[in-house]
Nucleic acid binder design. Sequence first.
DNA 1: GAGCACTGC
Length: 670
Amino acid sequence: MASEQELSTSFIPALYKPAALLPIARHKASLLYLVEKYPVTIVVGQTGSGKTTQLPQYLDQAGWCEDGKLIAVTQPRRVAATTVATRVAEEMRCQVGEAVGYSIRFEDLTSAETRVKFLTDGMLLREALVDPLLSRYSVIMVDEAHERSLSTDVLLGILKKIRKKRPELRIIISSATLQAEDFLRFFAGDEYHPDADSAELGGSIGRIISLEGRMYPVDTLFLESPAEDYVERAVKTVFDIHTQESEGDILVFLTGREEIDRAIQLISERAADLHPKSDSLVPLPLYAGLTTEQQMYVFEPTGENSRKVIVSTNIAEASVTIDGIVYVVDCGFAKLRAYNPSTGIETLTAVPISKASATQRAGRAGRTRPGKCFRLYTEQTYEQLPEATIPEIQRSNLAPIVMQLKALGIDNIVRFDFLTSPPAELVIRAFELLFSLGAVDDYAKLTKPLGMRMAELAVDPMMAKVLLAAPTFNCLSEMLSIAAMVSLQGTVWVQSYDNKKAAESHRRKFAVEEGDHLTYLNVYQAFVTKGKKDSKWCRDHLLNYRAMQRAVSIRGQLKRYLERFGIQVDETLSRQQTVDTSRQPEQIQRCLTTGYFAHAAKMQPDGTFKTVSGGLTLHAHPSSLMFNRKADWVIFHEIMQTGDKTYIRDITKIEKNYLLEYAPEYYKVT
DNA sequence: GAGCACTGC
């Protein structure tokens, strides 16, 4: 028993396990053989197989980096790219940035020495803009491809094209079991033989290889009848585990902050009724909206005679891994974003998870020793779940993707070889928006220079249009700050439980009559003049210091882009112009309208908004300054439906005639 | 009176 305790709270992290002992080691020869012989290798690797850390080293040793070529390993997330690079550098006994490096937005730790490079898949796509055949790389490994993120899917399509022009390129796709054949079929195309012996499915193009993982068995239990209230049921299950099962921490999957807060509350209340001599329960929330510091609590070992209960969103399904979890409680739902092409509105709703998700959640219980997973639904319900989650490319606003593909020289989006094609309505809607912004012409070609430049800017198309229009309105310097702040997506303010009123009064100090965009500008300017080197200043004003630093980086990057286009950003000009303070806000309001005219709404007497067509009732999001304030016409950055309400966020007042002035085609004068 | 998770020179 003592040794088991030691294992689960071991101070020697799993990453120091000798590499030779990893399950992948005995497949080294066959892996290298496959990569040598076939252009595409699909690696089905269970958790802990060592594929991400070992395979790149094998390839390096086998000479794939001779002639100055590099091995790229892509990750869907920034943190993964940095942590894996650090670990591989340790194993290869070098500093990160030497033989092993990583490259993510704002952080490039690579050098002329670098042979193995970890990067986000979005970053590799960006590299394809300047090096369309990705000719620096001899091998490209796409890790976690089964997650089917937007960039992963686009990257796979690009790689398929590149492969035809670069037969010597080696592509490795790491996937979960379920999708391995889909990937192989995609790359093998006509050569895929569905009737062949499974070993020969991929013809001369590729093969699938399976690596066993380091997982302990997980017992899965279902409910006999459906739960009425899964939050309540989750709490009950936590106490059943606590009183009846042996030691080990618990991970509960719920869908959002509200449910999590309620569950934490219930657990705390009922924990008071536990027998005084029994072990204590320590409930901890985990969701992306928490600050990094608040998230760190889930990694701290609890004291003796106590058990952690981590109540989490989907963030713990793939992005965050916590050691010591022995029990998983799965509510069977997750909140998922989807884009409705007929309304142009994003929805965020709780939907049943897929079988693949359920398996992944259960697996979180078997990382340190055999575990148990309690599913708060019946086995029959489980059987009816879809096999896999619908990939993002089939439920997203595709305007940014269309722009990106166009910038990469792929003109015919409809005929582009996607792993799974997006629905036609999504593609049509994207083109309609881009056409209305002037980014594409009647033939769906990128316009010059507007469309071309918009495609290169790393902001959404509406904001890209605004930035490129800003010089005309003499507000480029201001608009750069606004674009950077909007890119932070609502992380500007620190969320505080205790003092909502204090937070509100701090926000009001920066408030500007015209709305959220000018308020952002105010915050940004205050930060760079007063708080740039001072995290205390941010704390005092309940601003998120790291987010603000990020805004500075984003702004700098956007500015460099514009300068590369030959657009001068005169930072002194804007200060001189503040003499004429009455005029500046109007120029910004006008400029915003040139990009956001499709996101216009009119306030109704009851304080809600209606779209121009008049159909839909919109509510100002409570985080907006326009919540509880009077306005007439407004434009907004984002529209999202959650529950039964549709919210707009980042709102600025405008005049109705701006719409007619800057989008006469869109708002035909009647 | 409130939003799942990610990403980009």
